[in-house]
Design a protein around this nucleic acid. Structure first.
Lengths: 182, 182
DNA sequence: TGTAGCATGTAAGCCGTTACATGATTGA
DNA sequence: TCAATCATGTAACGGCTTACATGCTACA
């Protein structure tokens, strides 16, 4: 009877597990969206805010998270905490679900495929601006990596961030070489 | 009044442009799906067969492709050819649409993020089987690269395939290093 | 006073998938 | 004759986005 949740649901559940190890009160939907923007975005997706609330409600219906009305602050809000059941479900998912191959949606490579329909100058400027965008992304991810620090408790997230950085570096190298080969 | 088509639509239109330079009769939906499996899959997506026909009908409604009933063979089928209007639309799209940053949906990285919920042995075997899957993928893409040959007319597709190969190689390297660091 | 950020949602709709249905041809 | 491949679709539905609505708080 294990519920059939989407990968995105489990990803959010994962963020809530991490929160539960460092804090007591849980996260608001708004805060969860921010965490997703900082981490999930690089390896998965950062769902729209509206989607976050939808998933949170779904997780709540399954008993995977508790929703606690927080009226202590100036503003009323709901805080979400993962439950024991939720943690079990996440662990089960990690153990049993298929390890799908990554999906890459690469508009730049797609356009390059049709490079003969673009001018050579246009192709080059496309690649240049992609390298620039990679630099910006790398910068953002580097900030995330630095924020994590070197504590053992975040060893895995740190390794994943480094993976992302290495990927961006390799991509820059590949594209620069490609530019020369054209 | 430029129609608002999805990137996938334009990607398929791109396949039809390539076909038009090498052949006269056009492609059937079935053949188009095969081409997508061989090329688009690696950098974008290969839409389901049903989706191919849906897109083909849409492109036809816009006048971007001609649908020709082919009763010459043993089997009746419809062949699709890109029109001048379609070619213009594709070129315009290449010139004007936004160069979105690639989207990576990486279940392995996502799981690694929660590595502390898995056993260390399980993490390692996950990474091992990912490296294996990368090898298989690389093999498939290599066949595509080889099939293309070194003709100038396919210089761009060839470069894109090489990009993909370099990416897979880099990914293997990164993961192997990661495994040691754990 | 007004803009930015906090906080939570609903509604509509697109893109794409899986499941299913149909039927013809090729070759073992 | 039976499975595989060719060939074309429809139906249902899931996941996710954009657009929109609401209202409060902090601060310049």
């Amino acid at each position: 009877m294990t519920a059939n949740l989407s990968t995105t649901s489990y990803a959010l559940l994962g963020l809530l597990v991490f929160d539960s190890t460092t804090s007591e009160q849980g996260l608001t939907g708004y805060e969860l969206k921010q965490r997703a923007d900082r981490t999930l975005r690089f390896y998965w997706v950062s769902p729209a805010t509206s989607q976050i609330y939808t998933e949170l409600d779904r997780l709540n219906r399954h008993g995977y998270v508790d929703a606690i009305d927080d009226t202590s602050g100036k503003r009323n809000t709901r805080r979400f905490r993962i439950t024991g059941v939720g943690r079990d479900s996440l662990t089960t998912w990690l153990h049993t679900s298929e390890h799908d191959f990554p999906i890459l949606k690469h508009p730049i490579a797609l356009r390059l495929l049709m490079g003969s329909l673009m001018g050579p100058g246009e192709v080059e400027s496309m690649l240049d601006s992609y390298v620039e965008a990679l630099g910006a992304r790398r910068h953002e991810l580097e900030a995330v990596r630095d924020m994590l620090g070197d504590d053992d408790s975040v060893a895995y997230p740190a390794r994943v961030a480094e993976w992302g950085l290495a990927y961006y570096d390799s991509e820059v190298e590949i594209v620069n070489k490609l530019r020369k080969d054209l």
